[in-house]
Amino acid sequence: MRLAWAALMVVVPASLRRLIATRILGWDVHPSAYIGRSLIVVRHVTMGPDSGIGPFNVIRHLDELILERGASIATRNRIEAHPLAAVVFAHMKNRRATLALGPFAKITDAHEIDCSDAVTLGKHATIAGFRTQVLTHSLDLVRDRQTTGPVELGDRCAVMSGCILLSGTRVPARSIVSAGSVVTTKLTKELTFYRGNPAVEIRTLPETLKYFHREDLSDTERYYRAVEAAEARRDG
């Protein structure tokens, strides 16, 4: 039944999507949040003020999706947990199939994010560009069984296009991972530029970079208000 309501939300106007989300599915969606024409099959969704989920995303099999104030998921992203997670990962007692975006965090376009375990983005953290892969489950070749590990992005960090973040990894606050890099461990140094396969420290970054000082102003609010207005005009 949840899948049927999720499919219906793809085709109805924005005002009805919010109504289905709050009244029928029991999600916590702030009146200023925007839900685009995306397939969202998630047990529970929390969307704070001015947060937004754009069109053409597929978000499935998660226990929880959280977008705090001003956080956004743009378009054409595939965000899923393992569909048989309860069986495959029964031995992983602390696993959480969750995606949590802190205030003003952003996931841009056409990324693939595995949420078989928790993926967390801190305040103003960004998965930028296109086609980054975040993997929270992997095959333990020694024990010949699937395992999981959470992936964490610290406050105000940026992961650029075409990166791969493996299970159990971390990108520290106020750091940048160069396009095409592979993060295989918990990176530790803030104010650092990382690059390569595996990603290693390249140089220190200046604390004065404007990206590290973004203000708590929501471009998301203005953008999704415009999207919602355009959609309303199309729907007649």
Rank of each mutant, 00 (worst) to 15 (best):
V134M: 07
A85F: 04
L165P: 02
D219I: 14
S181W: 03
E152N: 14
Y224G: 03
K186C: 12
A229N: 05
A100H: 15
T192C: 12
S161L: 07
T192S: 14
P206W: 02
L165W: 05
S218F: 09
H137F: 01
V227T: 07
R2N: 14
N77S: 01
A100M: 10
R37S: 10
D117I: 04
A110P: 01
T169I: 06
F130E: 14
I66S: 00
P198F: 08
N57C: 08
M9R: 00
H137S: 00
P31T: 04
V134H: 07
V10D: 06
H82E: 11
V12G: 03
D117C: 00
L209V: 07
H91W: 13
D140R: 06
V182F: 09
T136P: 03
R23F: 11
Y211C: 08
G180I: 02
V200K: 12
S38P: 04
R78G: 09
A86N: 09
H44S: 12
S167Q: 03
E190D: 08
E207H: 11
A128Y: 10
V58W: 15
I113E: 03
A110K: 13
G162P: 01
V200H: 10
L153C: 04
T208C: 04
L39N: 05
R69E: 14
R37E: 11
A230C: 10
I107A: 05
G48P: 03
V29H: 09
I176M: 12
L205D: 00
R76P: 01
D50W: 11
T169A: 07
L84I: 04
E80Q: 13
N94V: 10
